[in-house]
Amino acid sequence: MAASIAAPLAIAFCLNSVSYAQVGVGTKPIKGAEMYLDGSRKMLDDKWIYWEGPRFSAKPPIKWTVVNDPVDKGTVINCNDPASQGGLYGSADIVTKKQFKDFRAHVEFLITKPGGNSGVYLQNRYEIQVLDGDTTSHGMAAVINESKSPYYAYNGIGKWNSYDILFRAARFKDGKLVEQPMVTLYFNGKKVHSNQKISQVWGGPNSGIDGGNDGGKGITDKPGGLKLQSEGHDVYYRNIWIKDMELDKADTDF
Rank of each mutant, 00 (worst) to 15 (best):
M1R: 14
A2I: 02
L9I: 11
A10V: 12
A12S: 15
V18W: 06
Y20N: 12
A21I: 15
I30S: 04
A33I: 04
L37C: 13
L37F: 10
D38K: 04
S40P: 02
L44W: 07
K47N: 04
W48H: 05
I62K: 08
V66D: 05
P70G: 02
D72P: 00
G74C: 00
V76D: 08
Y89D: 15
G90C: 11
D93Y: 12
I94C: 02
K98P: 06
H106G: 01
E108A: 06
L110I: 03
I111D: 00
I111N: 02
N117H: 12
Y126V: 07
G133W: 01
S137V: 01
A141I: 10
N145S: 15
S149H: 02
Y152R: 08
Y154Q: 00
G158Y: 10
D164M: 14
A169W: 03
A170R: 05
D174W: 02
L177T: 03
E179L: 07
F187M: 14
N195Y: 12
N195D: 15
Q196C: 11
K197W: 09
I198L: 13
Q200D: 12
D210F: 05
D210W: 11
K217P: 05
T220E: 14
D221Q: 11
P223A: 03
G225P: 03
L226G: 05
G232Q: 06
D234G: 00
V235E: 08
Y237N: 06
R238D: 13
W241T: 00
I242F: 02
I242V: 05
D244L: 03
M245D: 10
